[in-house]
Design a protein around this nucleic acid. Structure first.
Lengths: 353, 353
DNA sequence: CTGAAAGCGCTAACAG
DNA sequence: CTGTTAGCGCTTTCAG
């Protein structure tokens, strides 16, 4: 048996080897036309013997679809890629998205900023995009809309009512989760609850803040609201804590803090500890995003687990459906995110800590 | 101005609009042939006006290259993608790889298991692969080798001498780093140092174990070696600790533990704490992989920072070079991984802890 | 049921 | 310097 030519076998090689036309080969693989079972068998054997695999690129050229979707990782800063904040959220989301994509027969591309000038061609070749946490006037959203590229968002596009837009949306439930966290803090005994958000203008930050304001009014509690850049990590949390503790503008030191970013929560805990404040006895803390580090910190920190894995799965499925012009999957309205109570907000439980 | 046809403009549209041939357009964009500057300008303007962007797929068809490389995330288990272990390592590696890829004009695809039967076509369409931590008789390595697909590994292929193979390798320096960790434990006062590895049969686990054996012999220290599955996370660490503390086979309880997986280290710390052993006074701990959670645990844990960001960058560059038939980049032999000393192995320092 | 042939958008000889 | 043209591997009418 002569060594096959080094180039990979094409559909023609298979056709020749099976004594049929390329059409027949194409049809047996795509299941499109009608091919006699016997012929199919011959084709498959020939293909197998030759080690033939349809060329995805050529298919893509015909169909204008590559079978790849892109996940935009906002946190990826080209200058300091080692400083991914909210590592857990990102990793879990990306991991689950990759697996879910595979299940849909799609590849998952990781992309930082496709709007930038250096946007690699490949980045744009994707069939669709998953945009997590779009921000106000998001240039990426604008670009995708203009280019007519299908995309789904995780979290609403701020300022765009979901009913208005036909962009599929995976709901992160900022409203419900904020209330959940605040109610929990209240029940665990806090009466002056402060909110620490990030500075990105996405739904998570914005809606949490507005729900918090309303909630505070309802509870007749003077609101204490601090913003710290996500990228500052625990240092941002430390600063927020300092602001809250020193600037006693809201009439007194808070005895409960809801910090949206996990690393902010860690920084807050650190600052409180330094000042000799006890958690949860003096101040209760809840983080708005779960992370491994919250499970293992000196005092373990309660958090909202956004369930990035589930969000990712839904996003992929919604996008895949949109790409195939299928109706969007119905995930029912079972809530996704949940509260994880840990030591930082547990009323009193002698066995803990 | 009539609305442009809804299909995206092709190179021919540009050619027509600029009054030149398609070749000229192609050349001005690829910079391949020679085109008069004036013509170039006309072409560019026309292209810009039409909103033309070269079609990556068509380019790929011609060149047999898509401009996409794949990162195989071994930890992605389709059944439980939310259980990524070593989240930090993965996230940092993937993030840095995505950014580095972009800098090389490549997209980065996340892929779980391309050898499986369900392997989506797109997963295989990548121009090359980055395989982290290949294992003994790795089916993926075999598959890529057979298919003639270029790849680089991060960490040696166990059982294959790097000189023998022409697969580009990014060295994780397991040997040096193991010695570094063990020497550090020794210097911080430990005299019975145990090693806890994972169970994957990759270079990191295997080489660390063998270097440890040699090191123990050299120090005339009875070796105590325990293996725990990576996927068990902190529970694996807890079990390893139990084994080490109860099964006093090696003559006595260890006073120093080097645990390769960060979550194992956390579990070990937890178990030691439960038993009333003080860290670092009674037992010193070093983790073989850094993570945010080690920085914020009850007692902060020293670790080997593998510098996943740097490893990823090198892997991408090596692969990109290989794809272009360029010589592999020379990263010199400056060491990459480093030791981060934290409370869990700090001799005595009243300000810490 | 099967085959011939026309492209998908682009590049690269090869001629002018 | 610029244009003509022949494909890359595949799908898809449209005829047999």
């Amino acid at each position: 048996m002569p060594p096959p030519p080094s180039r990979r076998p094409t559909i023609r090689d298979v056709a020749r080897s099976a004594g049929v036309s390329v059409t027949t080969v194409s049809h047996t693989f795509s299941g499109n036309g009608k091919v006699a079972p016997a012929t199919q068998q011959r084709v498959r054997t020939a293909a197998h013997d030759l080690g033939y695999r349809p060329d995805v690129i050529a298919q893509g050229l015909r169909s204008n679809r590559l079978g790849v979707i892109a996940l935009v990782a906002r946190q990826l800063d080209a200058l300091r890629p080692e400083l991914l904040f909210d590592v857990d959220y990102f990793a879990r989301f990306a991991g689950a998205a990759a697996v879910a994509s595979l299940a849909e027969g799609l590849g998952l591309m990781l992309v930082s900023d496709p709007t930038g000038p250096r946007a690699a061609g490949a980045a744009l070749a994707s069939d669709g995009f998953i945009v997590t946490e779009p921000v106000v006037d998001d240039p990426l959203v604008e670009m995708l809309t203009n280019a007519g590229i299908p995309f789904v968002t995780v979290g609403e596009i701020p300022g765009v009512a979901p009913e208005t837009s036909d962009v599929p949306l995976v709901d992160i439930e900022s409203g419900r989760l904020t209330t959940l966290a605040l109610d929990h803090l209240w029940e665990s005994g806090a009466r002056r609850i402060a909110l620490v958000t990030g500075t990105d203008r996405n739904e998570w930050n914005l809606r949490s803040a507005s729900v918090y304001q309303r909630w505070a009014r309802f509870r007749r509690m003077p609101p204490a609201l601090v913003h710290a850049p996500e990228a500052l990590d625990d240092e941002g949390g430390r600063r927020a804590a300092i602001t809250l503790l020193d600037g006693s503008d809201a009439g007194g030191v808070p005895d409960g803090i809801y910090a949206l970013t996990s690393n902010h929560a860690l920084g807050i805990l650190a600052e409180l500890t330094v000042r000799g404040l006890r958690v949860p006895d003096d101040v209760r803390i809840v983080a708005g995003s779960d992370a491994e580090s919250l499970r293992t910190s000196q005092t373990t920190i309660s958090s909202i687990d956004l369930r990035p894995d589930e969000l990712a799965r839904r996003a992929v499925q919604a996008l895949a459906a949109r790409l195939d012009d299928r109706p969007p999957p119905d995930h029912g309205d079972a809530p996704v995110g949940r509260l994880l109570v840990r030591a930082s907000s547990r009323p009193r439980s002698p066995d803990q800590r």
